[in-house]
Amino acid sequence: MSFVVVRAGALTTVQDRGRPGYANLGIARSGALDLDALTLANRAVGNDDGAAVLETTLSGVGLRAVEPMVVAVAGAHCAVRVDGHPVAWGAPVLVRAGQVLDVGPAARGVRSYVAVRGGVDAAPALGSRSRDVLGSVGPEPLRDGERYDVGAEPATDGGWPGPLAARDVPDEITLPLVLGPRADWFTAGARRALWAATYVVGSASNRVGLRLQGAPLERRDGAELPSEGMVLGAVQVPPDGQPVVFLADHPVTGGYPVIGVVTAEGVGAAAQAVPGSTARFVRAVGP
C-alpha cells in the first residue's frame, strides 16, 4: 500500500517514538512532540503504539490513497475530509483508492497526527523513522508529489478503543517545572519572576524548542558555563533572559544555564501551544 502527498503543508514529518541512546554522539531522541497523540492515533487504526505517523504543523496535510487505507487523525483538532466530504476526527476512516484525505488546519493546538493502518514505511535511521530537524537525521519532511509506502497490516489488533478525546488546549498552558540544575545562577528576583510571570509563546517556536517571551530571567553574574548535557524539557536561558523549553529535537549539549526542567506532561502541552498564546510555570508535584 502507498499514498501520494498532494499538499505537504507547512512542515509535515514522519514521527515515531524517536531514537533514544545516541545523545553522546550528538543526536537527541526526537520523535513525536505530542506522544499521547501519537499513541491515540495509532490505537485508533490498530497499530502498535509507536508506529510511524505523520506530524503536521498548523496547516495540515493532504494525501491521495493509491490503494485503500485506514487512517485516523489525533492531536490538534481539525476538519478532516475525504474527497471534500467531512469525516470523523479521532476515529478510523477508510480512504478508498484514488480518494484524497485532507487534514485541515489546526483549529486548536499546533500538531495533528495522522496514523495509517500498517504505519508509514519511510526509511529508518538509527532505529527510528523520526525526522530530527536539528540533527538532520531520519526521513526528510514531506514534499508535494512524493509517494510513501505503508507497512504491513499489524499482527495484533486490540480492537478500536472508541472515539478519541482531543487534548485540552487551554488558552494558557501550565508547564510543571522542577528547579535546577542551574537555578542558583539566577537572581532571587528571577526565581520569583519565574513562578509569577506570564510568558507569550514566540513564533520562532519549533520542534527544537518552545521560545517564550516575557519577564527576563536575570543571571547573578556574567560567568561562562562550559557546555553540558541537556535533557528534554530543559528550560535554557540565553543572555537575553528569555527562556527556551527544549522539545524533542533539542541540542544534546548547551552552554547556557538551565533554570529548571519541565515534566513530560508539560512537554506534551508545549507541543500544542500556539504562537501568541500564553504559558506559566508551576512547581511540579513530586513523584
Binding site: P20, A23, P226, S227, G229, T253
Partner: peptide, 9 residues
C-alpha cells in the same frame, strides 16, 4: 538511557 559527557560534567 543516555550518558552524555561534556567539558566539566
Amino acid at each position: 538511557v543516555d550518558v552524555v559527557p561534556a567539558a566539566r560534567t
